[in-house]
Design a protein around this nucleic acid. Structure first.
Lengths: 163, 163
DNA sequence: TTGATTTAAGACTCTTCTATCTTAAATAGA
DNA sequence: TCTATTTAAGATAGAAGAGTCTTAAATCAA
């Protein structure tokens, strides 16, 4: 898995908060969010705490409490979320896990992977929460996990796209 | 982590076997390989069993036994190793883990990720064991894990390369 | 002030991945 | 044939990730 589960949940939740912020002021309830995204409440709470301590979200306890974006959603990139939860490893580590792999002491696939991971970094660093949330609305995209009732049935693995 | 530990070990071992095959005929000892690559013998054995049952390696028990490439190393790509151990998920699954994500029912980052993962697939599908092993010799690259004595000290994370 | 609501924090469980250990099976060579 | 060697296979253990549960702390509203 490229991103941890916690990280993907963090991204989905951040997009949810961004969209809610466009509709109404105030904090977004974690309870409500967990229901709509079909993410375990307690697990989601932990993830949002990480985003809060990373300075991406702010939170408020009590009635009408919840979480809110701390900065302008145009200034928060998807990479910010990934780094806050999974760290920089995806964008810096050797594909083969060789410590110290780098320009001076490369592994057999260093150049290829370095190019792809840099592409990954720049692509998602260039996508802000605002822009991504906007596209969700415009194209009516899905961004919640399937509910129990929805079948879902693992992921569709379309090999044909690769050939 | 993009590749599982088992998968990276499998790649390193496959490259080791490829290079050994250039020097001498016969099977490559797993015991010797585990020592030179600094990979746990029993764990490595399990991984090589997966490659054997995937038809990538053949094995022989007893004295002078070990593993050998079953096919020409020019016809085995790095993707073959990855797929044998980690499966196709890396090249087919949604970055956000949404089941059913695809052209018809995309997630908010489907297009971007689909492009990068296809790039990843084609890049490493285009790299054969023979070609990669050759480059190791030519450029004197490293492809073993650091030994206990070598400090190693986690990986070097050079953020500057990204900015 | 009191009570209901909501996030914070820590302990705990469950699963998967990683790694180790033991025993069995096959093979080469004496 | 007998023995040492080497991979195969299964059981076990340890570590990390994923998810749950309980209690505490803060806040709003009555």
């Amino acid at each position: 898995m490229v991103l941890s589960k916690a990280c993907t949940y963090g991204i989905l939740a951040s997009l949810y908060v961004t969209r809610e912020a466009n509709r109404s002021k105030g904090y977004v309830s974690i309870g409500r969010m967990s229901k709509e995204l079909n993410i375990s409440f307690h697990f989601l709470t932990k993830i949002l705490q990480q985003l809060t301590s990373a300075g991406i979200l702010s939170s408020m306890k009590g009635p009408k409490g919840g979480v809110a974006l701390k900065r302008n959603p145009q200034e928060i990139s998807l990479v910010d979320i990934v780094v806050a939860i999974d760290g920089m490893g995806l964008f810096t580590d050797c594909l083969l896990g060789l410590p110290g792999c780098g320009e001076e002491k490369p592994c057999p696939v260093h150049d290829e992977w370095a190019g792809i991971r840099a592409d990954l970094f720049h692509t998602f660093r260039g996508k802000s929460l605002a822009e991504t949330a906007k596209r969700i609305d415009e194209l009516n995209l899905r961004f919640a996990l399937p509910s129990e009732s929805e079948e879902g049935g693992k992921s569709i693995r379309d090999f044909r796209n690769l050939l």
